[in-house]
């Protein structure tokens, strides 16, 4: 009886009457370089949280190490700025323990595609409900211009001064190749409306939502996307009623291709083809099992645990 009334007390807890505005999610002024793409993603995320009215105390941003991984410090939510490449295991632990929390992961290309690549592959497979953002500027910025796995072949850096030796790795192609990939999208920080629409769709997705964000580094790779910024026609927008549709970009981004996000083979082909920069939803399927649901167990009270443990001890009794 006591338990019952305690439970009903919890349930009848007063309605949360707080209303959140973008400012409620803003932490201290970001210390990224002027013109860094990270600023745009930060603003977009704050806008998303306000639009979705997420409670700051139940929202967690987990990051690794690198310029973009300072992200959680500039949010006014809970944050976990961990170690290089390991944001995804931490986020997995958070969500497995507290499915009630909204979990966002912010990784750079070094974090996700290089040192933490093993975790990335397996996080896709676990399909834990979280938003994973790859802030891909194709270079190591914080450590001052070293080649990353997504650096274009031939691009000069401090570690490969005669130009990157290998062809760049394609994170979309890799993600779409992994069993259980359930949401794969690409957007660009210089198209804020598309970026916002993509974050919104990713957050709405039940499962592991992987978003690659093309991003400029004004300091070390100022020319990387200069042409794409100047000539919007290089960019091809994936369009579909079930896909991501950003308000007000049609006048500038006229180059569209129809793509059904349920078609995995078509998504793989589009991701592989390098003839255009494509933004939009490559693939989404919410029917895939989510690890935290597959592994959910019935929580027990301390007393119940003692009772079961006593039974367990019976089988070891002398």
């Amino acid at each position: 009886m006591i338990m019952d009334s305690a439970c009903s007390l919890l349930h009848s807890a007063h309605e949360d009457e707080r209303e959140f505005e973008m400012g409620d999610y803003q932490g201290p002024v970001a210390r990224w370089c002027a013109g860094c793409g990270d600023h745009s993603v930060l603003t977009s995320a704050q806008r998303l949280l306000a639009e979705e009215q997420l409670k700051p105390e139940t929202t967690v941003f987990v990051s690794g190490i690198g310029c973009s991984s300072r992200f959680p410090h500039y949010m006014k939510t809970y944050g976990f700025h961990g170690i290089h490449g390991r944001a995804l295991p931490v986020a997995t632990g958070v969500k497995l323990t507290r499915p009630d929390l909204d979990v966002f992961v912010v990784m750079g290309d070094g974090d996700c595609v290089s040192i933490g690549a093993g975790h990335w592959i397996h996080a896709i497979r676990y399909n834990v409900d979280m938003v994973a953002l790859l802030l891909d500027n194709n270079i190591y910025g914080l450590t001052k211009k070293q080649t990353s796995p997504t650096t274009p072949q031939g691009y000069r850096s401090n570690t490969q001064p005669r130009g990157s030796y290998l062809p760049a790795m394609n994170p979309l192609e890799a993600t779409l190749g992994v069993t259980n990939a359930s949401f794969v999208a690409q957007t660009a920080e210089w198209v804020p409306a598309h970026l916002f629409a993509t974050l919104k769709a990713a957050h709405a997705h039940k499962g592991f939502a992987f978003v690659r964000i093309l991003q400029r580094c004004p300091h070390f790779t100022p020319d990387m996307y200069a042409e794409a910024v100047k000539k919007p026609d290089i960019i091809e927008i994936l369009d579909h009623p079930e896909g991501i549709r950003a308000d007000g970009i049609d006048k500038v981004y006229k180059n569209k291709i129809s793509h059904d996000p349920l078609n995995l083979n078509a998504a793989r082909e589009l991701a592989q083809d390098q003839s255009a920069i494509r933004l939009g939803l490559f693939f989404r399927d919410e029917s895939y099992p989510r690890y935290e649901e597959t592994r959910a167990t019935n929580k027990r009270t301390a007393r119940e645990k003692m009772d079961i443990l006593n039974e367990e001890f019976d089988s070891y009794a002398v």
Binding site: V60, V62, F80, G82, R86, L88, P89, V90, A91, T92, G93, V94, K95, L96, T97, R98, L101, G118, H119, I121, H122
Partner: peptide
Amino acid sequence: EDEIAAAGVAIGSSYA
């Protein structure tokens, strides 16, 4: 998936 991730998941869980 590996020993590192095992530590990371446990730490994430503790943090939560």
